[in-house]
Design a protein around this nucleic acid. Structure first.
Lengths: 119, 119
DNA sequence: CTAGAACCTGACACCAATGTCAGATTCAAG
DNA sequence: CTTGAATCTGACATTGGTGTCAGGTTCTAG
């Protein structure tokens, strides 16, 4: 598929898709004229990338991580180096703290919302 | 307490504390010479602010939200307006999605970490 | 009184993903 | 072939919280 369709299906702007490519997180074949041609699996990949961004990983980490992920198409996955594992473990801890924070904030919002609802 | 101690105790830079004040999220008495003097409750407040930032709320929303929060010192809290409640409800939904995303990303990391650990 | 630590304001820089625009090229349908 | 939609590259702007520096003032221990 081409970039327009990928953008529509993933809800990610074309701008961002090109950015992902430049960062090495996403690759595409090219038509003779130079237009990008994506495989079906790109949809899942882009969604994964977005999730990882949302989790606070920078593109550099994601670049390292992606080849180690079991893609939905079951492609062969690279084994993470010990060094990468260390980094990812730290990221995991950070994500845990993030989730805890979010839950506290959600509780705070719930309190305020509830207090406004009931006299 | 003064800004240095507050910064140390909350792990938030003095720079950020001054910024919070300028945005109207944090107030402080002033000494005759102009130095900020914070009450003990400021510690909790700053931590709350950080959590809300981490949850993706912008300072403007936080400004509206703060007076509606039951402070740890049990101060009188303002009732959220219906309009604010609507906005906060949307934020709450966003936080829920965020948590779901984070959990998926954490699972992804776990998979990669586990795959690297076991041959 | 004094020295050094702490604080003040204001300004500029940064980050990293994304938005946006311009001008040129390619694609696909008629 | 033509034409309009889609895509290309490259450049500049934005965002919002934070870092950092400069130059000056205030505080406090001795």
């Amino acid at each position: 598929m081409r970039i327009g369709e990928l953008a529509r299906r993933t809800n990610v702007s074309e701008r961002s898709l090109r950015y992902y490519e430049k960062q090495g997180m996403l690759t595409a074949e090219r038509t003779p004229g130079g237009h990008r041609e994506y495989p079906e699996a790109a949809v899942d990949r882009v969604i994964r990338i977005q999730e990882l961004f949302a989790a606070g990983l920078c593109s550099e980490k994601i670049v390292q991580l992606l080849p180690c992920m079991r893609d939905t198409d079951g492609g062969p996955s690279v084994r993470a180096t010990p060094n990468l594992v260390t980094e990812l473990t730290a990221e995991r801890a950070r994500i845990d703290r993030m989730i805890a924070d979010l839950i506290r904030s959600r509780d705070t919002l719930d309190e305020v919302i509830e207090a406004a609802r009931v006299p």
